[in-house]
C-alpha cells in the first residue's frame, strides 16, 4: 500500500491554489483532509500527478451564521461540525451525521468539502445536504458559482465540480420554526460506511401539516439522491405513521441499490424503507418538540 510518485504543492492562499489548478488542469487533485483521497492513492486507484494541499489556505474552515444561511467552509472538519452548538442546535441532523462518520481520528481530520467533492455513494454528507436543500459554492480562477446540492452528485465519485474548481463553502438554509431533522445510518460495525443512510429534514406549519420536506438517501444508488417521490407524498400532508410508511416505501422504490458486501439489493431496498421511516419519525418528534 505505497502510493505512486506525485508532486505536491501547498499554496499559501486561494488565488494561488486556483491558479495552480488551472495551470495543471487534469493532473492536479485537491487535497483537503486526505481521508477520502489518500486511501485511493495508496491503493494506486488514483494516481494524480500533483496534489494541491489546501492546508495553508485560510478562510476555508469557518462555521458561521449569516442571516438565513449557515456557511460551512469546505475545510471544516467533521469534528468542528459535531461541536458547533449553534449549528447542531438548529440542525441536529448535522450532529447525527457528523457523529457517525468514520471514527474519532477521521473526524478530526476529514473535511466536509473533501467528502462532498469525493462523492463516495456511501458517504453521509451528500444525502444530508440534499435533505437540507443546501448549496455548494465552487471557486475557480475565473470566478465563483453556487449550485444546489441536488443535482451536484452525478455518479459514483463524480460531481458537478470542474477540475480547476475548489469547493469553498457549503450553504445551508437556517431552518424555520417547527423544523426537525434526523439522519439514520445503518452500518455493519462502528466506523463503517453506510449500508443505508436516510436523511430527513422537515418543517411543520402552524396547523401541523408538513410544509417543507427534504429526504436524502445514502448508499442506495450510484450516487446519493433526493427521494423526491417520498417528498411529494409528504408535502402538505398531516404527518402520521401510515403516511410515513407509504413515503418510506416510495423512497425505497426510487432507490437503485447494488448487491455488495454490505448486503443484497433486496435487503437494502427494505432498509431504505426502514431507515426512512425511522428518520421521518425522529424528525417529526424533533420538529414537534421545537414547536
Amino acid at each position: 500500500m505505497i502510493p505512486s510518485a506525485f508532486d505536491y504543492v501547498r499554496p499559501a492562499d486561494l488565488g494561488e491554489a486556483l491558479r495552480i489548478l488551472k495551470e495543471r488542469e487534469g493532473e492536479a487533485k485537491v487535497l483537503s483532509g486526505g481521508f477520502s483521497l489518500l486511501p485511493l492513492i495508496k491503493l494506486r486507484l488514483a494516481q494524480p500527478g500533483l496534489l494541491v494541499d489546501l492546508r495553508d489556505v485560510g478562510g476555508l474552515n469557518g462555521l458561521t451564521r449569516d442571516g438565513d444561511l449557515f456557511r460551512i467552509g469546505g475545510r471544516a472538519t467533521h469534528r468542528q461540525i459535531l461541536e458547533d452548538r449553534p449549528l447542531t442546535d438548529a440542525l441536529p441532523i448535522m450532529k447525527d451525521a457528523a457523529s457517525r462518520i468514520g471514527d474519532p481520528q477521521i473526524r478530526n481530520w476529514g473535511t466536509i468539502g473533501g467528502s462532498v467533492a469525493h462523492a463516495d455513494p456511501a458517504a453521509d454528507w451528500p444525502a444530508v445536504l440534499q435533505a437540507l436543500h443546501a448549496s455548494i459554492v465552487l471557486r475557480s480562477a475565473d470566478g465563483e458559482r453556487t449550485v444546489p446540492a441536488r443535482g451536484f452528485f452525478i455518479d459514483t465519485f463524480t460531481t458537478g465540480i470542474e477540475p480547476a474548481e475548489i469547493l469553498t463553502e457549503i450553504q445551508i438554509p437556517f431552518p424555520p420554526p417547527r423544523s426537525g431533522g434526523s439522519y439514520q445510518k445503518l452500518e455493519r460495525r462502528a466506523g463503517d460506511f453506510s449500508t443505508v443512510g436516510a436523511a430527513v429534514q422537515m418543517t411543520l406549519g402552524a396547523d401541523g401539516r408538513i410544509t417543507q420536506i427534504g429526504i436524502g438517501l445514502t448508499a442506495v444508488a450510484d450516487s446519493p439522491f433526493a427521494a423526491t417521490h417520498a417528498e411529494d407524498a409528504l408535502r402538505g400532508a398531516h404527518p402520521n405513521d401510515e403516511l410515513f410508511r407509504e413515503a418510506a416505501a416510495a423512497a425505497s422504490r426510487q432507490s437503485r441499490p447494488a448487491t455488495d458486501s454490505h448486503g443484497p439489493a433486496e435487503y437494502k431496498r427494505a432498509m431504505v424503507t426502514e431507515m426512512t421511516a425511522r428518520a421521518l419519525r425522529a424528525a417529526l418528534a424533533r420538529a414537534q418538540a421545537q414547536g
Binding site: 445503518l186 455493519r188 449500508t195 448486503g263 433486496e266 435487503y267 427494505a270
Partner: peptide, 11 residues
C-alpha cells in the same frame, strides 16, 4: 448471522 441474513428469514 449478519443483519441481512436474519432479515431475510424474518422477511
Amino acid at each position: 448471522m449478519t443483519p441481512q441474513k436474519v432479515w431475510a428469514i424474518l422477511h
